[in-house]
Design a protein around this nucleic acid. Structure first.
Lengths: 221, 221
DNA sequence: GACTCGATGTCGAGT
DNA sequence: ACTCGACGTCGAGTC
């Protein structure tokens, strides 16, 4: 990884046209050839960049860097002054290990389906339908089928999704009548209103408690 | 901006839980307090990060950095070895100037609506409907209303959107019958097929030429 | 402040 | 290679 602190201006032409006026910035050149231009603020997103695979050519005389890719996009960096130019060998990163995502929530709820209520059983995870798989298909104590849609954060689009599933499943005489449960770590007020309006039930899931396999992890609204 | 090359491991807990094993990486601390952890590859997105506003506290004895924000999220960086630690004053960046985005396309087409055809007039930009604003509402030479949906890149979801608008507008006896035009710099084949199937027209817009105010900027399919 | 929508989105999985 | 969907989406504009 090469780190250059330089006063530069930048022009990007590709999917759009963009320009950065002359100012001091950090230029990061990664081992895969990608280039990132960062300012001292903003967010994790660079001011501008070129994603790999791409090629950097440097004109030492004019101080112009040209980064191009196969699609014909170009990032042109005009350097007025170099304040620092260093390079480091970092090696390949072992990579990020994620946890607490929707898949894990689904796994936990599938394992502890009885926590939805006494006498509940799991029919199957990822129950297939014509418009996509339902996260969980269960049966309640009365033997009624229940479609469960699981999200980390419950928003309107998730309710729409569940609505479509329940509607579809209810057309199947072997399944109907089908209840719908919208389960999420956090359910936004709007989503809750819409779900209730659609005759669906909402469930707030306590992820940490569920991991601890407590029986009172779920609060039904 | 402070740049630290260090062998470190990272733990994030917040909206999800994530872990990075011990490895050499770049730690970028920006003036607004945000912290980015970059590897020597991947993309412009850091391996992990904390967005501003946040606070960095550094325990010199244990070599542990803790970055926290108001929402209770924490980024914990355990440093095994520091290879380099430098800081630079970059100042506030003048910021990116974008061009060629959808808003600009809409502006240009609204200005040069006569280029759709002789005798065309603009009713209004962002014509409001119950399901959202139509980009342009025009009238053709025959006085028929035309709904125009503008995208940089024309894909299927844009066609769906236009379909809904045209359907809705056609319910209004004061407007019906309404034509629909799908205008984009690049229209994907699938989108073109779907649009044609729906009775909509497709239009490829030459952005550079339109900026040059040529009269033959549009090619109607 | 909350909500909506676009993005050079990015990223990953499936086909 | 392409499509589809989720994202710690981010960020800008609006209400």
């Amino acid at each position: 990884m090469r780190l250059v602190i330089a006063t530069c201006s930048v022009d990007y032409s590709g999917r759009l046209t963009a320009h950065l006026p002359m100012a001091p910035r950090l230029l990061m050149v990664k081992a895969d050839g990608s280039v990132l231009i960062h300012a001292d603020g903003g967010s994790y997103k660079p001011l501008n960049w070129m994603s790999p695979p791409c090629k950097l050519t440097e004109d030492v005389d004019t101080g112009v860097w040209s980064v191009t890719n196969k699609a014909g996009e170009e990032l042109r960096i005009t350097i007025d002054q170099v304040h620092s130019d260093t390079a480091y060998e970092l090696g390949i990163d072992p990579g990020l290990i994620k946890d607490g995502v929707e898949a894990h929530l689904q796994e936990l709820l599938a394992e502890h389906v009885h926590t939805f209520g006494d006498g509940w059983t799991l029919v199957r995870r990822e129950y297939p339908t014509a418009i996509g798989p339902v996260d969980l298909l269960c049966r309640d104590a009365d033997g009624r089928h229940v479609a469960v849609e699981i999200k980390r954060r419950g928003e309107i689009d998730g309710v729409e999704q569940l609505t479509r599933y329940v509607e579809l499943l209810n057309r199947d005489p072997l399944l109907a009548p089908v209840r719908g449960i919208f389960a999420a770590q956090l359910i936004k007020p709007q989503a809750k209103v819409l779900a209730t309006d659609r005759g669906l039930e909402c469930l707030t899931v306590d992820y940490d408690a569920l991991r601890g396999m407590e029986s009172d992890v779920l609060r039904l609204f």
